[in-house]
Amino acid sequence: MSTSTAFPSAAPTATAEVGGLRMRYRATGDGDPVLLLHGIGRSLEDWSEQHDRLSAEYRVISLDLPGFGHSDRLPGPSTLTGLASALPGFLDAVGASGPVHAVGNSLGGAVAMRLAADRPERVRSLLLANSAGFGQEVTIALRVLAIRPLGGLLLRPSRTGAARTTRAIFHDRSFATPERIELALALAGRPAHNRTLLEVARDLGGFRGVSEPWRTALLAELAGLDLPTLVVWGDRDLILPAAHLDAARAALPRAESHLFTDTGHMPQIERADAFAALASAFFARDRGTS
């Protein structure tokens, strides 16, 4: 493992070798392992606030999913199943061989669900934040990626585009700081990152929205597991609408749920204290200590 500071970041990161792939990650704290998974076109920096808050009780691990950020791409096209299949090896490489509390935002939620369905022995609980997988509706900005060659053209890096996409994920635009915009611009400047974004977006859906077959199959698998699950959403999400929380409650009737008011697509940032408190209480219930 080696240290790295590939992108603007307030915290150092490291690199793990996983089956010949280099995967960038951050690990802080001690205790039961918590795995944090970012959304499409994003990076582990989306979890900085939760590292700050959860590391007093847990070993908190975030990573750039394969092909995103500064992690190497998987061999072949990037798919939801491929992203999830890389995680057991990654967890072994960073010393988290037992089951983890898997926390996913947006695409990361779908990756966490896929991991749980494929390798239930590796997942202790699921916390899904504004997660993909519960409905067809998704922002037009992601749907147009399915149009060739328009999708590729739209991913050309520009500061204007980075600012626009960063503002879209927050209800309170003050969170779209210059540092976050610079990070988005740095990510957009990596060809491997953009190629992965396109491939994953097209794997999950098209211009009509998120595809139904994979969602139905995955939710049916997940519903068959006796896995503690908490689904949270921001009521002002412009990427995946908050109505998907009702769909999540219907698909996973045993799951807990919470709706954050005046909150966009990133409650782990925009409501960092409340999110961490919910997460800690949820994990504690799984331990049977609250």
Score class of each variant (00 low, 15 high):
G67P: 10
L204F: 09
S4W: 12
A176S: 09
G29T: 09
R114V: 02
G151R: 13
L245E: 10
L83I: 06
R119H: 14
R159E: 12
G104M: 04
R249P: 04
R59E: 13
A277L: 14
A242M: 07
L155R: 09
G104I: 02
G104W: 09
G31C: 10
A281G: 15
S78Y: 01
L245N: 11
A276G: 10
Q136K: 15
S290T: 15
A176I: 09
W233D: 04
T166R: 01
T216N: 02
P157L: 06
F68K: 03
R287T: 15
L36H: 00
L219S: 01
V232W: 11
L240R: 01
A274Y: 04
S2W: 01
A163C: 08
L54K: 02
L154V: 01
L204K: 10
P241K: 00
P99D: 09
A184Y: 04
R124T: 06
L91R: 00
T79L: 11
L278D: 02
S43T: 13
Q136N: 15
N105P: 03
A6H: 07
R156L: 15
G209K: 07
R24Q: 05
R271N: 08
S106W: 11
G189N: 09
G264F: 00
A277N: 14
F170E: 08
G108R: 00
N194K: 04
R208N: 01
S71A: 13
Q136S: 11
S55E: 14
A162M: 02
P267Y: 12
E182S: 13
A168C: 05
L230T: 12
A255W: 07
G31M: 01
L245D: 01
E45Y: 04
A141N: 13
E121F: 00
D92E: 15
P88F: 10
P241E: 05
P191C: 03
A192N: 12
